[in-house]
Design a protein around this nucleic acid. Structure first.
Lengths: 189, 189
DNA sequence: TTAAAAACTTAATCTATTTCAAGAAAGGAA
DNA sequence: TTCCTTTCTTGAAATAGATTAAGTTTTTAA
């Protein structure tokens, strides 16, 4: 929980009272490797802050193949935002790819929190802004680079991360097949 | 400007005084077809609310081809978020694809506005949340559908919009070449 | 410590999409 | 209207990456 406070304090000021309110309202969840936080066809009541660990948002296509659309690591928020905001059934799975600890932010009770700690509006505005900026960049790399270039670029940008997840998850995130990633690696290392 | 107030009031309450402050701080800008609001290599001081019209964010790749990464129409905000938030030089062009009217939100003066009208934090949080949710959906369609399917899906979802922009802009936005789009169209309609 | 499951590799074949090149149509300005 | 620019079309040849299938290596759980 301390990890979340520190993250928030990068963007806003929190009083001791604010932290008490947050501690009382939010709860910690310990997850095992491969544990699901959300499955397709379920309602999504929570947004998750990753204190420690790695999660991925993925879906399963008609052929039964898992496609990862987003990764989250320490100090990121992750959830199925469509399901979370619209109260519709989720079209995604949310899974911990390694053991870790999360803070669970519940949609029910969210408004109360925003009313009690208005600075949270700002906090989420700012992290969503960062995410949107990152997404514009990613859009660009995605259309500008070939699959192979995309892999090398990602590898250079996040070398430690590439070690943390299975290749097949990374491949689908980067927009190609695991077999192709295997070839890229064979060609260069 | 009235268009912006109406949009804000979908998410937050605005007093008459709030509107006065906004009117005094923000300014309206009329744009012609093809007019640029931002060019590569420039600083980006503004975020734009499109009252009426259509804009696109694009870059020019090594081959000199324009790649559209985002469209905005009536009631959307658009800018180069990396350049806007980091105060670095822009890597994108922002262009009006048709004549229109925009509200210019200036970064300098932004903090003052947030302090005077704290509800704006919430407004931007909520629209960024929507954008992030839409982006997760888009990510999914992008990896799940073939180029041709993506075009048909987009065409079905936004039929009126497809008429509004040149095919080559749409093609790069959908992730393929104008020639290919031409062939898709020839094949069906 | 071992068996089973999960993850990765390799190679041959196949295909969606790109590239190139040239011409046709449409649109705007004069 | 006419010209000039922009946008769109068409077809042939090339290619990045997918698919399939089988085998190998690594990891996990018992």
């Amino acid at each position: 929980m301390e990890a979340l406070f520190q993250h928030m304090e990068r963007y806003i000021d929190l009083t001791a009272a604010d932290k008490d309110v947050l501690s009382e309202t939010l709860r910690l969840r310990i997850v095992k490797r491969k544990e699901h936080l959300l499955e397709e066809g379920r309602f999504c009541h929570s947004n998750y802050f990753i204190c420690k660990g790695c999660c991925r948002l993925y879906y399963v296509n008609d052929k039964g193949v898992e496609q990862t659309v987003q990764f989250g690591i320490d100090n990121w928020w992750i959830t199925d935002l469509v399901a979370y905001t619209s109260e519709k059934l989720s079209q995604f799975y949310l899974q911990a790819t390694e053991a870790g600890a999360l803070v669970v932010w519940d949609r029910r009770g969210e408004e109360k929190l925003f009313r009690r700690i208005p600075a949270l509006e700002r906090y989420f505005r700012l992290i969503l802004l960062r995410a949107a900026a990152a997404e514009q960049q990613r859009s660009r790399y995605f259309s500008d680079l070939s699959g192979e270039e995309r892999y090398h670029h990602f590898n250079r940008s996040f070398p430690e991360f590439v070690q943390r997840v299975p290749q097949y998850m990374l491949a689908s995130y980067l927009g190609f097949t695991p077999e192709f990633l295997s070839k890229i690696r064979a060609g260069k290392t």
